[in-house]
Design a protein around this nucleic acid. Structure first.
Lengths: 226, 226
DNA sequence: CGAAAGTTTGAGTTGCTTCAACCGCGGTGG
DNA sequence: CCACCGCGGTTGAAGCAACTCAAACTTTCG
């Protein structure tokens, strides 16, 4: 078993906890548990009781709605420094989602009781929680917007444009099936849309790296149906 | 102009504020403003700055994403006793939605500064906010689930089954176009699905009241593709 | 190297939308 | 009082974007 890191150190360095009272954060650290999760391992299933919340210290987590016929719908990718599973915890409802590690990850788990205590102790912690929930909420609204009001082409282009990039190089952090699911498309449709963009010389794809050639043209595309 | 009601009285009777410290609630009441809104009037537009939050004291409000071609997507209906517009307020982001009164309504508006003060003063208020956000979040997840993993028929059936009802009588509180939009369907499709259910003798429609005859059969339908 | 997983391509299908016409009802003003 | 309008709702016919199924190709990795 790997050596345990200092949890308080860990929390202190997460942007998430900036502005939190140091003493309160220290208290919270004592209640926090480290959880190491291997790539592809499941963190929780839909239906499990939500007794606490998770923070991704390092790693990458996939949140998805499972479906009978293997057709899962990916809700979001949780990156280092962000929390997940809070909403259902606060409601005392079972999870609606599955959570799975995309890579070997280090998570922090904190019990609901300790979260509640921290909220009582430090209003700025409450505010951290509130902001986190608000951000997730905003993201969901945006997703609903894109799924509902735009075509496959627009969704793909919109996704590509908002990915982090160095110059024209845009590395895809997850595989294409997952991007497709996030966008509410089948892998086939996603692939076809990429091919279309390649034909139009607007992008080039090399493995899992995309070069964006015509950013302004793409921005046009994302605005209206072609 | 109508006579002003006692805001503290109003807040005290909302289930939303149950458990809140009475003194803190009283402080908050002083900062609260009453806003009377006529049917069909707009409360805010997408893009407006979110400087505070709204609570529906009495009335009914529609939250929707506007779209170029008049094709709006309804996100939710906010009923008496619930808040809206919090998430964007906490993020200091402009609204992503439009909000419009469906009937003459009485809203409470509270400035962000006063909300922040109340959070500092009373952790149980923070918890109220957190629970509210969590509930909205849960609802969005459910919506994404239904839109993504089920057919028009399943969505309609699912919607009907979860409506409040006295016996078999289920009054539709909003018109059918709006229900269709909420379900991510066109009015035409919604109408056709209802007709199909009528033909199957599972429901009867009289104006805006639906009689549900075969609840168990409908529950079957909502589970899998017919 | 070989198996398994991921991606692309093709062909055919389909559920929902779009467009358009029509019905019925409530409100309004001549 | 009734004609007319406008809006919500229904119905029909046609179209299409994305899906499904299937097969080939490619990359990954033990």
């Amino acid at each position: 078993m790997g050596k345990e890191l200092d949890v308080d150190e860990l929390l202190a360095h997460l942007p998430l906890f900036e502005g939190m009272d140091a003493a309160a954060r220290n208290e919270l650290s004592k209640a926090a548990h480290q959880v190491r999760i291997a790539k592809k391992e499941t963190i929780f299933h839909k239906g499990d009781a939500a007794k606490g919340l998770f923070i991704v210290a390092v790693g990458h987590v996939k949140i998805s709605i499972p479906s009978e016929r293997g057709r899962e719908k990916i809700i979001e990718f949780v990156e280092s420094g962000r929390a997940f599973g809070e909403a259902m915890m606060f409601l005392d409802h079972p999870y609606l989602n599955d959570a799975q590690a995309l890579v070997d990850s280090l998570l922090i788990w904190i019990d609901k009781r300790d979260i509640d205590a921290a909220i009582d102790r430090d209003p700025s912690f409450a505010r951290i929680i509130i902001k986190g929930l608000s951000r997730r909420f905003e993201n969901l609204i945006r997703d609903i917007e894109t799924v509902h009001l735009s075509s496959a082409l627009q969704r793909v282009v919109g996704y590509l444009l908002m990915q982090p990039h160095n110059g024209t190089q845009t590395p895809l952090i997850v595989n294409k099936q997952m991007i497709a699911s996030k966008l509410g498309l089948t892998p086939e449709t996603f692939s076809r849309v990429l091919q279309k963009l390649i034909k139009k010389q607007m992008i080039a794809v090399k493995g899992s790296t995309i070069s964006i050639h015509g950013r302004p043209e793409l921005e046009q595309l994302s605005g209206h149906t072609e």
